[in-house]
Nucleic acid binder design. Sequence first.
DNA 1: CTCATTCTCTGACCTTAGTCAGAGATCTAG
DNA 2: CTAGATCTCTGACTAAGGTCAGAGAATGAG
Lengths: 292, 292
Amino acid sequence: MSDTAVVRRFQRTVTQRIGALEDGFLARGRPLGQARVLWEIGEGVEVRALRARLGLDSGYLSRLLRALEAEGLVVVEGGGADGRVRTARLTPAGIAEREELDRRSDEAAAEVLAPLPAAQRDRLVAAMAEVERLLTASMVTVEALDPGHPAARRCVEAYVAELGRRFESGFDPARSLSAEDDELRPPAGMLLVATLHAEPVGCVAVKLHPRQSMAEIKRMWVDPSVRGLGLGRRLLAEAETRAAGHGVRTLRLETNRALAEAVALYRASGYLEVAPFSEEPYAHHWFAKRLR
Amino acid sequence: MSDTAVVRRFQRTVTQRIGALEDGFLARGRPLGQARVLWEIGEGVEVRALRARLGLDSGYLSRLLRALEAEGLVVVEGGGADGRVRTARLTPAGIAEREELDRRSDEAAAEVLAPLPAAQRDRLVAAMAEVERLLTASMVTVEALDPGHPAARRCVEAYVAELGRRFESGFDPARSLSAEDDELRPPAGMLLVATLHAEPVGCVAVKLHPRQSMAEIKRMWVDPSVRGLGLGRRLLAEAETRAAGHGVRTLRLETNRALAEAVALYRASGYLEVAPFSEEPYAHHWFAKRLR
DNA sequence: CTCATTCTCTGACCTTAGTCAGAGATCTAG
DNA sequence: CTAGATCTCTGACTAAGGTCAGAGAATGAG
């Protein structure tokens, strides 16, 4: 059976099995839209945040909130610093209702596993975890962003913070070799950002050198929550492809020994360790790869 | 993470990933209901069969068919033996449309796999196949049916046909030891039937002996399409539980060496080979198990 | 032949989900 | 202070999906 046939059978079976449990069972006769809103209101959310998270029209969300308010499950009130913004909060009844939904959701999940003997159940759970992880990986998109873009800023900040935590000596970007915004922005370079659910979860930069067929990899970072999904490898491959498109023949980079998984990634991706080519004070390893 | 938590995360991710591709992409601006009907009309289906299969209200289905007819994708015509029944059939345009849906469905499936490097793709496909298999297994229900029930009849016929194919000498039920309807119907015995998607896919019978703590397993059969899902083991376990409920302490059975997987199942389920206890001409192995 | 049942269809109606165009209050940059 | 932007809300509207109550034709049991 071809890969796509497997995916299609999978889809068919999953929607049948999981969908059947969801309907009515989980929502308790409540419209799905209302249930989703109920779920997303944690300990008070700004209405605009709710709108963004659920991707709803403002008029539609407003009406959903009115309906939940009428049932006494939610209160929406202003009074914050910004007088335009209102905040939705669960009432005790709303909290109880959400706990009920939670309980039912667990029950539905247990019902899927119940008919199976223990050995098969374990295999199913393991396979589901694997599918979940890999589907998550396949939802990540990679695109070039301007270093000034908020998502790009957050990535680079997370990168710096992580180096600070992991290097024995801490990390001060000012002491490190430069990778300023202008150096990572066309035409001088590029910054690729990986995004999952509208959140930046990884990045890599390429610093080009005018009239040279050599370029440098910088700012390689993957959010801890998505490690193990092969995202680092994907970012690196994408950077290589794009660099090659700019005429780059050789990529090089330096890294710190504290970043063991990064070192392993570079080796596995065909980077060979070379003699130090820079004065980077935080580096222990220098790598280079010739692009084909 | 608990098993139910894995199932819930799985559900969440899958509906996001698979659902997102489905919407609009597959239906081509066509309402989902219409697309589903288009899909289920193969080479002509009776309207009532369509209704049963899709679980739709007759009025609703009628309107869906009118809409598809208006687009020239479907014709609905009477003229069969039963003048009330009408049959829906795809026009050439309808066939083309369905092929287009098929193509898009494949494309959507490919799109899920596309962002992943080959190694991860293979793992995802393997994990999906595993989830699909095990979810299918968890959709199977097992219940006691009267031997005269059509589903029970079909099972037993399939059982006989398979023995006929697999025994070196063929299989003639008349020459075999008896297992008549009355012997497999309470109070003399029981017949358990496994059902998937309203189709019988396996069975097992228990033949009790009045005032004896011994009973016999008969008619053990699993449809080839669902082998490897542990259904045989489940049927056997269910039969044992129910037999124990009737005061049975020892179960025994005989089987033919051509049924290697059945023999393996019995051994794995705790049945021990014993000396022949019957004159069954088709048997090569006799097994017994003491129930706790 | 008759009466109940089956099958399909139409008309009336409903809920959910969602879009779009403002209104009114509030905030922010200049 | 003003103009434009932001935030929430209401009202008007739409499409999809579906239910329910018959009507009308055909069938099957007695």
